[in-house]
Design a protein around this nucleic acid. Structure first.
Lengths: 193, 193
DNA sequence: TTTTAGTATAGACTATAGTCTAGATATAAA
DNA sequence: TTTATATCTAGACTATAGTCTATACTAAAA
């Protein structure tokens, strides 16, 4: 996560994430963040709308992953395989490197805030990547004719988010990867002819 | 929603919901609720863990609906038709009678609270009903053999919640019913042989 | 230079969710 | 009936997210 030690915003972000991972989100106050980053409340609220908005960087982390995947992925694979692969990679990333508490918070923020919702931004690398694959699949004629590229992209995103959401509210008591491996293929099958 | 005007808990609940619908969740303080219900902060926190926990009654409302559906539904319908019907009825209820702000709050609460999560309770009428239908379908041999009754129940619940979650974060900018009508059949198809 | 406008920093202040403790009221045991 | 216990009510108190206003810095225009 961004950590320009020189500029105030960077200092705040890195102090915040350090504290979040060390003490948890709830047990970290703005006061703590401001103190640890040697800045001030005024600076904090100059750069961030709220405590929650610090979490946005989490969704940027996801997009970094998608940038990586976009290059890495074999263009010759069939669309369905690509989608399964992308799903697995996301879930691996989440299960291995993201604090579930913070993911819960990110999702909760999207429900309660009226502010920026980066996860939904159609210009995210995520949507570009999924849409691109939807187009390929559509051209290859594998998807139901009644479904537009948009339908497919949205449906995939909804289902993937649904899986993550469920994993979160269950407190990560099962393997997200395994769940994805089981259910995603079934879902995709439903989209196909 | 419960409204025993005589007992303190009931007075609090009905005052709270009245205020939530009138002014919104955020614009209603505990102070307001306590004042309107002619009780006290102490009583409030005696009966409720937090402001959020007032929202639980919303998930009980859903179960009232399922109690109703359980009787109403034609036992001769095929399992898939039953699931589609139940889904439509839920989404109709939500779209017509539930404040989206409060639904968002309910879902957010499930993500952030460590307390009671009634939505997930396997003894909910909801799960009993879905499970019953999954059993029927399983016996009729319509579902993939690899899927257990539990798999089917869980998968259905995850997808349905995913649809609601998406509708919430999109701020209800499209018709939940229509979305369900389009996507639920595709999803169910994936579960079938 | 000096002025000015925009941006950044500081910390006191406000609003409100949630805690704490003392006392009231009901219920059961003696 | 008295005593003891558990439950309920009350409101003062605490902690903290977010606001507000004053000052300091920066960089471009005069």
């Amino acid at each position: 996560m961004k950590s320009n030690k020189s500029n105030t915003k960077g200092k705040i972000v890195s102090a915040a994430w350090k504290l979040f991972y060390q003490y948890g989100y709830d047990n970290t106050t703005i006061e703590d963040i401001v103190e640890a980053s040697e800045t001030s409340r005024g600076s904090f609220y100059h750069y961030f709308e709220s405590k929650d908005s610090l979490l946005s960087s989490l969704s940027y982390l996801f997009d970094d992953k998608y940038d990586e995947l976009q290059n890495e992925i074999d263009p010759n694979w069939p669309a369905i395989e690509k989608l399964k692969y992308i799903n697995q990679e996301l879930f691996l990333l989440i299960e291995n490197t993201v604090s579930i508490e913070l993911l819960c918070r990110l999702f909760a923020m999207h429900l309660t805030t009226s502010g920026e919702k980066h996860l939904l931004n159609p210009n995210r690398t995520y949507y570009k990547l999924i849409r691109q694959i939807a187009i390929e699949g559509k051209e290859a004629g594998i998807f139901k004719d009644s479904l537009s590229v948009n339908d497919i992209t949205r449906a995939y995103a909804i289902f993937e988010r649904g899986l993550m959401y469920d994993w979160c509210i269950c407190g990560g008591t099962y393997s997200l990867c395994q769940q994805g491996q089981t259910l995603m293929p079934l879902f995709l099958e439903g989209l196909c002819k």
